[in-house]
């Protein structure tokens, strides 16, 4: 404890789980930049950031649920439902954009609350509950739209989806705010700490007077909010209210937090790690395109990355145990 504060800061940075990931990201960027001149073009950076914007919201929506030691299969279904509600309310009801957006977010929160409330009251695994609600939300989505997109998107939304400042898409604002908010939530607020405590050791959390119901419902509500935000961003980007929005979010939602070092048993998540996980996935996607490799390859790589991340986590655990017994 005698060391000067400066070295303490460096030490605490060195101890972060995400340092290795950062290194991987830096190396990947350097490698791509050197081998592919197009990589650093303004347009390519724009494409990268667009991909990042959406994926990071999806990943955070799953991460807050991993924090409480559960899982949420319905992230995509909530996103899709919010997306078509947002588009439908504008096209059919003629709601102004801000109101439609608020309604979309409210639907996300509502769906999340429902997930949290049912999980907590029944005491059943969130897996089976969110599998059921996944199909309910998706069924609602398809029932309303009959699988037809809403084409009539307000010009303001379309403009927002297309707007860019040089290489930076304007819609990056939403995920950046979300990242900061979730980081503050998880690291600085009482609610966030209580959520992590519930994920880490539910018995201890309860003995410490933490309301498990409140933590669980809050986490699911936040997850729903983030999923809804992602869904509406997808509408802006696609320029239409596509009912299939969210169908392919499952893998990425788990991949990024797991690559970022989240412990699936709950109690530990890393917002920065999750963001870096999304960056890695986005870079892989981009690299496949730049090198002209079959884009379906990404599916295979994502799965392999999840396995590798879990394997590395496991390896660290074993090492840690060995250290303790030594």
């Amino acid at each position: 404890m005698a060391s000067p504060p400066g070295s303490l800061v460096i030490k605490s940075i060195l101890r972060q789980d995400w340092l290795g990931l950062l290194l991987v990201v830096v190396l990947a960027i350097a490698g791509l930049a050197l081998s592919q001149p197009n990589f650093l073009s303004s347009f390519n950076i724009y494409v990268l950031l667009l991909g990042f914007s959406l994926s990071v919201l999806i990943a955070l929506a799953q991460m807050v649920i991993i924090a409480i030691g559960q899982m949420n299969l319905s992230v995509g279904a909530i996103g899709g439902l919010a997306a078509i509600s947002f588009a439908g309310l504008m096209e059919v009801v003629g709601l102004p954009v801000p109101l439609a957006a608020l309604a979309g977010l409210a639907i996300g929160i509502l769906c999340g609350c429902l997930n949290g409330w049912i999980t907590h009251t029944t005491g059943l695994s969130a897996f089976i509950i969110t599998l059921a609600t996944l199909s309910i939300f998706k069924g609602l989505n398809l029932g309303i739209t009959e699988a037809q997109p809403f084409y009539d998107i307000a010009p303001a939304v379309k403009a927002f989806g297309n707007a860019r400042m040089g290489p930076i898409p304007v819609m990056l604002v939403a995920p950046v705010i979300a990242i900061i908010a979730v980081w503050v939530l998880m690291n600085r607020t009482v609610l966030g700490r209580q959520m992590l405590a519930v994920g880490g050791n539910p018995n201890a959390a309860e003995l410490s007077g933490i309301s498990i119901r409140r933590a669980v419902v809050a986490a699911h509500a936040i997850s729903g909010l983030l999923a809804a935000l992602a869904g509406m961003l997808a509408v802006a980007r696609l320029q239409l209210g596509q009912p299939t929005i969210g169908d392919d979010w499952l893998i990425i939602s788990f991949a990024a937090p797991v690559i970022g070092g989240a412990v699936l048993a709950g109690g530990h998540v890393s917002v920065i790690g999750t963001c870096l996980g999304v960056v890695i996935v986005t870079l892989i996607n981009n690299a496949l395109v730049l090198y002209g490799i079959d884009p379906f390859f990404v599916q295979l790589l994502l799965g392999a990355l999840i396995l590798a991340a879990v394997g590395i986590n496991r390896y660290h655990e074993v090492q840690e145990q060995a250290r303790r017994f030594a």
Binding site: M71, I251, F297, Q299, L302, G303, L307, R314
Partner: peptide, 18 residues
């Protein structure tokens, strides 16, 4: 790997399909 089959099969569903 001593992890729950959820995460393993989540990964392999993507790998096999890809």
């Amino acid at each position: 790997m001593r992890v729950h089959s959820f995460i393993v099969t989540l990964a392999t569903m993507s790998i096999f399909f890809g």
